[in-house]
C-alpha cells in the first residue's frame, strides 16, 4: 500500500501547487453556476406545473454540481497518455507495482487535489451569498460523504478504463472528446436528473453516470434517505467493481499486445 500512498501524496502535493488554475476554475464555475441558475429561474417562473424539485433544491443542486464539476470531466490521465505516446510507459512497467493500481492511483490523485481546491471556495461563497442550502440533516451529511467517496471511486475507475484504452488508440483524442459529453448529460450536470421525463428515469437509474453527481447531491438534499440512499450507494459501488474488473481485464489484454513506441 505504501508505494501507492507515496505516489498519491506526491501527485496531490504537486497539483495543490496550481493555485492560479484553481482560482480561475472557481471563477468560471461560479459564473456558469449563475447562468444555469438564471435559466432554471426562468423555467420555473414560466411554468405552472408542479416540478419534482423546488427551485430552492435546484439551486443547491446546481451549486454542488458546480463544486464537483471535475468529477464529470473524465479524460484519460494526461501523464499516462503522454507516457504511452512517447514510450515512457516502459519505465512504468519496470516498477514492482501492479500496473492497474498504479494508474488508478494516478487518476485518483490527479482529481482529488484540484477538486478539493475548487469545491471549498465554491461551497463557502455559494453558501453565504448564492442560495446553497446546508445538508438536509446530520445523517444526510454523513451519507453524503460516503456517497461522495463512491463518486470519486467511480470517476477514478472510469478514468483508469479510459487511460487503458489508450493502449489501443494511442492519441486518445476520440475517446477524450466523446466520453465527457455523455457523462455530462447523464450525470445531472446539465439538468438535474429528477427533472428528466419519467420514461427516462429507469434508464438513468441504471446508467453509471448518476453515481458521479446526482446520487451524492440528492442524498445531500434529503431526496434519498434510508433504503433508497443505501440502494443508490450500492449502485455506485456496483459500478466501481464493474469498471475496475473491466479495466483489469482490458489491461491484461493490452499488456500482452503492447508495443512500446520508439527507441
Amino acid at each position: 500500500m505504501k508505494p501507492y500512498l507515496a505516489i498519491f501524496s506526491s501527485h496531490f502535493r504537486a497539483l495543490l501547487q496550481y493555485r492560479a488554475a484553481a482560482l480561475a476554475g472557481v471563477g468560471t464555475q461560479l459564473f456558469f453556476g449563475i447562468v444555469r441558475l438564471m435559466i432554471f429561474d426562468a423555467f420555473y417562473r414560466s411554468s405552472t406545473i408542479v416540478q419534482p424539485m423546488t427551485l430552492d433544491e435546484v439551486t443547491t443542486y446546481i451549486w454542488l454540481s458546480q463544486a464537483f464539476l471535475l468529477l464529470t470531466m473524465l479524460n484519460p490521465d494526461a501523464e499516462v497518455s503522454a507516457m504511452i505516446r512517447t514510450g515512457n510507459v516502459a519505465y512504468e512497467m519496470t516498477r514492482p507495482l501492479d500496473l492497474y493500481t498504479l494508474w488508478f492511483t494516478r487518476g485518483f490523485s490527479g482529481r482529488a487535489g484540484p477538486i478539493l481546491l475548487r469545491s471549498i471556495p465554491i461551497f463557502v461563497i455559494a453558501g453565504l451569498f448564492l442560495g446553497l442550502r446546508m445538508p438536509a440533516s446530520v445523517s444526510a451529511m454523513l451519507i453524503f460523504i460516503v456517497s461522495l467517496c463512491g463518486a470519486f471511486l467511480v470517476a477514478s475507475s472510469i478514468v483508469a478504463l479510459l487511460t487503458i484504452s489508450m493502449l489501443w488508440t494511442i492519441s486518445g483524442e476520440g475517446i477524450a472528446r466523446m466520453a465527457p459529453a455523455a457523462i455530462f448529460f447523464f450525470s445531472g450536470m446539465v439538468i438535474p436528473l429528477p427533472l428528466f421525463p419519467d420514461w427516462m428515469q429507469g434508464l438513468l437509474a441504471l446508467l453509471p453516470m448518476r453515481a458521479l453527481i446526482d446520487t451524492p447531491l440528492r442524498i445531500y438534499l434529503g431526496h434519498l434517505t434510508g433504503a433508497d440512499a443505501f440502494a443508490a450507494i450500492a449502485h455506485q459501488y456496483f459500478w466501481v467493481v464493474a469498471f475496475i474488473t473491466a479495466g483489469r481485464a482490458v489491461l491484461a489484454v493490452g499488456v500482452r499486445k503492447l508495443v512500446v513506441q520508439g527507441g
Binding site: 508505494p3 507515496a6 516498477r95
Partner: peptide, 9 residues
C-alpha cells in the same frame, strides 16, 4: 529518489 525508495520499499 525518495519516491523510488517508497516504490521499491
Amino acid at each position: 529518489f525518495e519516491l523510488l525508495r517508497d516504490i521499491y520499499s
